[in-house]
Amino acid sequence: MLQIRNLYAYYGKIEALSGVSCHVNQGEIVALIGANGAGKTTLLNALCGLVQARGKVTFHGESLLSVPPEGIVARGISQVPEGRQIFAPLTVAENLALGAYLRQRRGQRHEIAADLEKVYALFPRLYERRQQAAGTLSGGEQQMLAIGRALMARPRLLLLDEPSLGLAPVIVDSIIETIVNLRRQGVTILMVEQNARTALSIADRGYVLETGRILLSGPAAELLHDRQVTRAYLGKDYKEFTEGR
């Protein structure tokens, strides 16, 4: 579904990704794990056209790298950014409507209404608070809203950036459950996590990034088992890497 070959990404002169190759198959949950600054978020941003990148990225056989961000959303890739980045003054319902912005312009009114119902079914809490300003939601609810907003674009591939960041463990569990549910509904997921244990517990496969390079890859269960090996590669970042913060 998504194939990445030799991806380089830059922030100015700084090389944040140094030749990353990886892939995501239809229906999979793939986890990108690694310590802070390893290049995980950069990889997602490069996929969405948000940072300068070179290499070869194809989605269903079509090249992505020269496509502008809105074109990438139109092709079926949505990102749930780190720190949610919801529109705080707008209501929950308005935030969700914005997620379907491109589709509204194409006049898919009925489909959008149906998808909105699905999102509310997935997150009943959002339905209860649909008229409330998004900024007044709790961290977990904001994360639900961010995911809901991304789903409103009806993505084939959902990119999740640190979905568990800053959330209480019990909320993390419910977000994780949601992700598993989404996969069951046919959404393919590429997720970035510093909390490797959480990510690998639900992923099919994983890649371990360090300083913009992939050091290890394999079935998630194996990588989870290989925390010891991972520690060897990640040195002192190991604790942060396996236990979250």
Binding site: Q3, R5, G19, S21, C22, H23, R213, I214, L215, L216, S217, A232, Y233
Partner: peptide, 21 residues
Amino acid sequence: EELELLQLERLQSTLNRAYRQ
């Protein structure tokens, strides 16, 4: 095609590990 991408991924991470370790 998928096999070759898998090989490339694994080759690159093997080289990264070998060079680093």
